[in-house]
């Protein structure tokens, strides 16, 4: 009987080429990093169960789940607002995977595993805002979209979740994008197109930033 291996394959595996892309005569203005193999669970409060869910979330994660478009992080998890009465739980290593969260929340919420439905791309660099201005209609100026701001929005008519992470040690802004897996390759090409003039440094990581 044949042996079967079940290696996960990122939706960006085919298209992502590690290294430099685009303009070479400038220091890379953009870093694009794909984060692979994460757990992502959507939690939607049931009717009239908002307060119970909020308490359960606080107990589980040690912090309140966002009720407005924000992302909040603890050491092992990020909670991202994704719409009224709902948020996403982003983590690694199975600690907040579907089966575990189901037990904690199924009394008050409906859970849907989105771990494989998205690709996670982190955009940083001096030109991150200039490049994202070509993709996103949002105002990403620090005054309007500070660290921790999140949005459910669209790029190229495709739904994405976008949030601003903590700045890098050198002060550069970091924007995280969750894009639908089947659109990921197409959006990746669009992002490269937008970033090429600034010089791009491409990589991937198994770690959440």
């Amino acid at each position: 009987m044949a042996e079967f291996s079940w290696l996960p394959r990122s939706p960006l595996e085919h298209v992502l080429v590690v290294g430099a892309y685009g303009a070479r005569d400038v220091a890379p203005g953009i870093s694009l990093t794909e984060i692979r193999n994460f757990d992502l669970i959507q939690i939607m409060a049931r009717r009239g169960k908002g307060a119970e869910l909020a308490n359960a979330a606080k107990a589980r994660f040690g912090m309140a789940a966002p009720e407005v478009p924000k992302a909040v992080s603890a050491s092992d998890v990020t909670l991202i607002w994704s719409g009224p009465d709902q948020f996403l739980v982003l983590s690694k290593g199975g600690k907040h995977a579907m089966d575990i969260l189901s037990q904690a929340f199924s009394q008050f919420a409906s859970l849907s595993d989105q771990s494989h439905a998205r690709a996670l791309i982190s955009v940083s660099g001096m030109k991150a805002c200039a490049m994202l201005a070509k993709l996103s209609s949002l105002d990403l100026h620090p005054a309007s979209f500070p660290i921790g701001a999140a949005a459910a929005t669209s790029i190229d008519h495709t739904s994405v979740n976008l949030w601003r992470g903590s700045d890098l040690p050198d002060g550069q802004a970091v924007f995280n994008l969750l894009v639908f897996a089947t659109f990921a390759e197409s959006l990746w090409r669009t992002m490269l197109d937008a970033a090429a003039e600034y010089g791009v440094d491409i990589g991937y990581s198994e770690e959440l930033g």
């Binding site: 959507q42 009717r47 409906s110 494989h116 439905a117 998205r118 639908f180």
Partner: peptide, 13 residues
Amino acid sequence: ELDVQLTSVSDQW
């Protein structure tokens, strides 16, 4: 009035 929640899982599977 119905207690029902919807999520697209088209890309999950």
